[in-house]
Simulated scan of single mutants.
Amino acid sequence: MDKPTVTTSEVRDLLTHFEGQEITLDKVRSELQIERGTKSFDAVRNIFLRLVEARVIRYISRGNYKVIMPVSPVSVFGQDREHRPPFELIFPRDFETGMEMDFANNVTIREGDLITIGGVKSKGKTTLMMNFCGENVDKLPILMGNEYTIIGEDGWEPQPRWFNRMEIMGQWIDWTDENGQDKFTLMPVHDDYAEHIVKHRLNLIDWININGERLYDIGKILEGIKRAEGRGVTIVALQKGDGADNPRGGQFVRDFSDLELLLDGFGSNEDDILLTIKGAKEKNAPIVGNRYSYTIRDNGTKIVNFRQVKQCNTCYGKGYTKTGKCDTCFGAKWTDK
């Protein structure tokens, strides 16, 4: 006796297991054990046509569809809703003065925010990330990325250069709790970051490697991270070309960043850094475009002489005048403001 013809209800029940995913007619037939030549074989196609009209699935190409993820409206004022305060993120401090980076008071960081740090190679990305970690270590941050771990003889272990820096910073930061256990969590994750983000926590990723031919992928990576962090905050370091206005990935990075910081060299001293506020979604002062300089000391652990700078009025930011190196900025292109 022939099996009963497949029904729309049976197909819809199956599709609930594939919400948000692509699926083919052949996949549905296989899952429902429908053989070629039966009435159900052709019925599946007709059912799919009706489900496209009902917006249960979306047509992609011949035989290929995407199951639409159901979405319900979110009530804004129709119910009592908790007013969430800003995320209490502490910015790095000038080691000599103990003062937090002065623009920190003009930036509001919210739960679910993403901070991106685009830096030229060897221009202090890891120093800034480690200082963010140190200042916020009591929030039990999560660390992952290419700078922190390597594969040793017995499995994953801290990257030696990074571990040396952590030991130095241990002179003024309590990295461990009363039981001698790490307050932070070091994860040997170098890819698929969104899958390892810890929800409602401070996550730091230093740094994300991107294929030069697929820079647009960074948009999807950052979008996935923001969706995964819940009420937490994530700080991501990215590579930037020397003199470039954005990190690698350009506008795809800007699309998802709530605070954008850029790091470049400052003058001829390789340990002098120029920090630019490229963008900030929530601020209480006109800080976007402001530039600051500081010096990195003690094997990339300390930030000192943090101050705001402006373009040199003598050489107009060129570093040189008609007579040679600028006598005002000494070729740095910037002067203290």
Rank of each mutant, 00 (worst) to 15 (best):
M1L: 15
D2G: 04
K3S: 10
T7K: 12
R12G: 00
D13A: 11
L14G: 11
L15Q: 14
T24H: 00
L25F: 02
D26P: 00
V28Q: 02
R29T: 12
Q33W: 04
E35W: 06
R36T: 10
K39W: 05
A43V: 09
R45D: 15
N46C: 08
L49I: 07
E53F: 05
A54Y: 04
S61G: 07
N64M: 10
K66I: 02
I68S: 01
V71W: 03
V71F: 02
V74S: 05
V74E: 06
Q79F: 14
D80N: 13
R81A: 11
E82K: 10
H83G: 01
L89V: 00
I90W: 01
I90L: 12
A104H: 13
V107G: 11
R110W: 15
I115H: 04
I115W: 04
G118Q: 08
S122H: 14
G124T: 04
T126C: 06
C133V: 14
E135V: 03
E135C: 06
L140G: 00
M144V: 15
G145D: 07
N146M: 11
E157G: 12
Q159G: 07
R161K: 15
R161V: 14
M166R: 11
M166Q: 11
W172R: 13
I173Q: 04
T176N: 00
D177N: 12
E178Q: 14
K183P: 01
T185E: 08
L186D: 09
H190R: 05
D191Q: 12
D191F: 04
E195N: 14
H196C: 12
I197N: 11
H200E: 11
R201Y: 01
I210H: 00
N211D: 15
E213C: 01
D217V: 02
E223K: 14
G224V: 03
K226A: 09
R227C: 07
R227P: 00
K240I: 06
G241K: 13
F252H: 09
D258Y: 02
L261N: 01
D264Q: 07
G265H: 04
G265D: 03
F266A: 08
G267Q: 09
E270C: 02
D272V: 00
L274C: 07
L275I: 11
K281N: 10
N290L: 05
R297G: 01
N299F: 09
T301R: 04
V309L: 06
K310I: 13
N313F: 14
C315A: 08
G317N: 09
Y320N: 09
T321P: 08
G324E: 03
C326W: 02
